[in-house]
Computed example of a mutant assay.
Amino acid sequence: MTLFEYSKTNPVIIAGPCVMESYELMAEVAQTLADIKARKGYRIVFKASFDKANRTSVSSFRGPGLEKGLTWLSDIKATYGLEVTTDIHESHQAAPVGQVVDVVQIPAFLCRQTDLVVEAGKTGKIVNIKKAQFLTAADMKYPAEKVLSTGNSQIWLTERGNMLGYNNLVVDFRNIPALQQHGFPVIMDCTHAVQQPGGGVTGGNRALVKPMALAAKAFGADGYFFEVHPEPEKGLSDAANMYRLSEFEQLLDTLLS
């Protein structure tokens, strides 16, 4: 079994801070994740964004940018022995990102952007496509087909909820088995699913992250996505949704037992 073949006995865990606030923050989180992986054997992929290009406000913190971000991510991978992933927002970012990461992530809002998804497929890396808040599980066959058109069949699909009226998301957990019908592993994004988008600063409720994960397990998810932070209230992006790093191992133990 290769590292990124999925199984019910050892699901993929994607975890890390929402945005690359600093290298020191990334290193602190990566050290904790590497320790958990070493002791427990969990399959952990480190995630952080070099640019939060879809922030609500023009004044919101976005990250260090492509060049510095990939340097930091490469250092994390080499230093802590973790596989890594990050998201891309423009098609020209795919090739340089693909030289560093193990998984290229397509943001939910951008999963219908043909050039972006095709260029991600051309990297030959796993492409994790997050389901848009406005799409059904059935609709996700089309982004997957765009990756497949490049000859790359390494695809993950991520559920993260659908819009319910204004400034709210709801998760229909039936989407997990429905997405699996496309023939690819399905990841549950447990932190973005509790967002309350809009209002200048995105809100949310991190108390619901653990129940989201446990419900996704009941529906047969192949992996789980968490944004984690030592002090989530001080986070520069998604502060209301990120899970507290010091409590993360306990959550994983409960989820993966």
Rank of each mutant, 00 (worst) to 15 (best):
G81L: 15
D238V: 12
G198I: 14
D253F: 00
T150V: 09
E145R: 01
T86F: 13
L252Q: 11
T114K: 05
Q180Y: 14
P197W: 04
A138Q: 15
C190L: 14
V209Q: 04
D139I: 13
V84W: 02
E28N: 05
L73M: 15
A34G: 12
L252E: 07
K146G: 07
S22I: 15
G124K: 03
A27R: 12
S149E: 08
G204Q: 01
P230C: 12
Q93C: 04
M20L: 07
R43C: 05
N167V: 00
A213W: 13
D238P: 05
L208Y: 09
K130A: 12
K234Q: 14
P197L: 01
V58D: 00
N54W: 02
M188S: 04
V101S: 07
T56S: 09
S7L: 11
S74N: 06
Q31R: 14
D87S: 11
G69R: 00
G165R: 03
H92T: 11
R43Y: 09
L214W: 06
A213G: 10
N128K: 13
K8R: 15
L148W: 07
D238W: 09
P143D: 00
M1I: 12
D139R: 11
Y166Q: 04
A178P: 03
G204A: 08
L157I: 12
A30Q: 11
V127T: 10
A213L: 08
Y80M: 12
